[in-house]
Design a protein around this nucleic acid. Structure first.
Lengths: 376, 376
DNA sequence: GCCAAATGTTTAAACGTTTAAACTAAATGG
DNA sequence: CCATTTAGTTTAAACGTTTAAACATTTGGC
């Protein structure tokens, strides 16, 4: 049983402790408060109207700066003052019901605890704020069922639009959005057959670039560690790898390609690396097609009696703290996250404003060469 | 000018391209769609009622499983079927207006792109989902102004409650929540004087534990790298450091304490470390009081001709990829994130259900000893 | 002075729900 | 066979906004 410090509870100002509570095997004190009423009723237009002695309409007009030319300056001033005094805050829910615009966008990411998603979330939130929009979010953990459920929840909350990183097999749900003309933008991934806006990396080109870089630095047996997935971004990254080999006159060796499952099982990656390094004609380098893959990979590699880049070159997609702080910082593809997030919001805003044009964009990734791929 | 691949745009099914667009120096194609109507009107109770030929009330009762004993089985069946056929989705906004419950909670984190926040966000979202709650979030980037603004936005959206990581100097805004009886729970940090629920780490004890560990492993000159802040968690961590020194019969040497500003300026940390290591009686170890501090610190330390832990021992608060993948994985305090997130949601749910008891809890951190602090 | 125009304000309906209360019709009891 | 209960359904008001339309008063032109 864990012990909990209670010093703060016992300090002055927090008296009247009446009982212990047990939640999840944690024992702690609770503060017994005076049994006050329900949550306070919030100030509405009605309250202001009553206070000033005018109709609700007039209050609404004044606070929304509408029909100002028709409204007397004095009354307007009185209303504004009363609103300030009462600390009026407009009820977005009521407003949303009436106007059919909630000023919220739904953000559906693959996994918010992954740096890619959380960075993107931050950028999107910042950009949305410029348009006076709030972000409602859901993290579906690459689970299609959960993704569907979250999408429903967001729609039920009448979001004005959605930004989505789609999971595998969610075409049907996305088609529903198209059919119902609910504005949305895909980010990071997309379905070729689905006529919708999407912003993503030029994965094929990036895969080619990263592979070519390894090849041009003397690698001949590049182990590819990638997801077992039909999602377009992964598939394209793999294709880029194959294309680069071809352009350099090399044959694809299937034994060098290791696919691991989503969500990641750490041991699967270790196993894959072990096999790649112990085969008769072993890999002289590794290419990871996502940050989670390289992070897990590195965790295993540091345990091996192997020196990067001399014994093994490494390259990966995406940035990560792990890639930065590994003793040989990883050569990687840097995605233009800022641009992608901003464009996604801008595209969505246009769609919400009834702009029916589809924006389908694949941005170039930047090859950042570092120590991990440059053997002496 | 960056080039954009257009292959997907040019594929079949995407015809009628009419113009180039230029956004943020990216050039790309847009798809000119048929100019269809506005967003489709969504299905409402009214539509179902009309289809079945009953009143709206009855539909509402059936779909909410209310007064079931009074409603004829056949009609109920018909209604359910019609709802399914029309793919009815309840309008949470309308429901929220009527019931004064939006089934949303607002989450205000310090910085969503920080692993602490994003992991917490994920846990909180998962837990909230169990209660049928959706999370609206804002990331205030440790900025009090922004925090105030976001809080207002969330309140305007009539969230049923809030989970907040408060920034410095936001007491006033939090007091407003108390005064207006808006349920909320602080997480990670709190204000002693504010009578509200909060869940956080036992920072003092953790700071003491981490410092004692270093001392007991032979360190005598522990450089403390911490934030220049009055926020309780940082202050307590510092106090824990001081208390541990005292208990081990050591005097606090102010020269060993380096405070850096929020948000972090990387060079400031490098500078601090440089000073600590170059003083007449230099530090033999470093204690970082947050993950961002150690991550930036490590970035600098890897550039130095110094061997951890032999030349310099290191310990830090919080886990991070960087701490894991550094050649000498960092000894650290592991926070019970899962527990904290879950308790925060549970506490908030109780508060929303009119439970007026305050829960104030400081959970113990776990000392995870690794290579960075154990000199040979 | 009368009518029209300009100015200032209110009325009322609507958005999609919920829910107490009312209503109707059928079943039951004495 | 009437009164009461029970079963099944509807009416209507409400939540806090927005907004077209109506209304009322003043001003100005001729």
């Amino acid at each position: 049983m864990l012990t909990i410090r209670l010093q703060y509870l016992l300090k002055e100002g927090h008296r009247h402790f009446t009982k212990w509570l047990k939640i999840n095997c944690f024992l702690f004190y609770v503060h017994k408060a005076d049994n006050i009423s329900l949550m306070k009723k919030r100030v509405s237009l009605k309250d202001i109207a009553k206070k000033v002695g005018v109709s609700i309409t007039l209050v609404s007009y004044v606070l929304n700066n509408k029909h100002l030319n028709r409204i007397s300056k004095q009354i307007a001033e009185k209303i504004k003052q009363a609103a300030a005094e009462l600390n009026y805050k407009p009820n977005q829910v009521a407003k949303g019901l009436k106007t059919n615009k909630t000023q919220t966008i739904g953000l559906l990411v693959a996994d918010i605890s992954n740096a890619f998603s959380s960075t993107m979330a931050r950028i999107i939130e910042n950009e949305a704020e410029k348009y006076n929009y709030t972000v409602i979010f859901g993290s579906c953990d690459e689970n299609t069922e959960r993704s569907k459920k979250l999408m429903d929840v967001l729609i039920n909350h009448q979001v004005d639009g959605l930004i989505i990183t789609p999971t595998e097999h969610s075409e049907k749900q996305l088609q529903y959005l198209v059919d119902n003309e609910i504005p949305f933008v895909l980010i990071d991934r997309f379905y070729e057959k689905l006529a919708c806006s999407h912003i993503s990396l030029d994965n094929f080109e990036a895969g080619k670039k990263l592979t070519s870089h390894l090849l041009e630095n003397g690698c001949r047996r590049i182990g590819l560690i990638t997801y077992r997935s039909t999602i377009n971004n992964i598939v394209e990254r793999n294709q880029g790898y194959i294309e680069a080999l071809k352009e350099h006159g090399l044959e694809l060796d299937d034994a060098l390609v290791k696919e691991v499952s989503i969500p990641i099982v750490s041991s699967e990656i270790s196993e894959a690396i072990k096999e790649l390094l112990s085969m008769p004609n072993p890999a002289d380098s590794l290419l990871f097609t996502a940050n989670m893959l390289s992070t897990h990979g590195l965790r295993y590699i540091v345990t091996l009696p192997i020196k990067v880049p001399d014994d093994l070159a490494i390259a990966t997609f995406d940035q990560s703290e792990a890639a930065d702080l590994f003793y040989a910082p990883l050569t990687h593809i840097k995605q233009p996250l800022e641009e992608m997030g901003r464009l996604a919001v801008q595209t969505l805003m246009a769609a919400i404003e009834e702009n029916k044009e589809l924006v389908q964009l694949q941005l170039p990734g930047e090859l950042v060469v570092r120590k991990s791929s440059i053997a002496k």
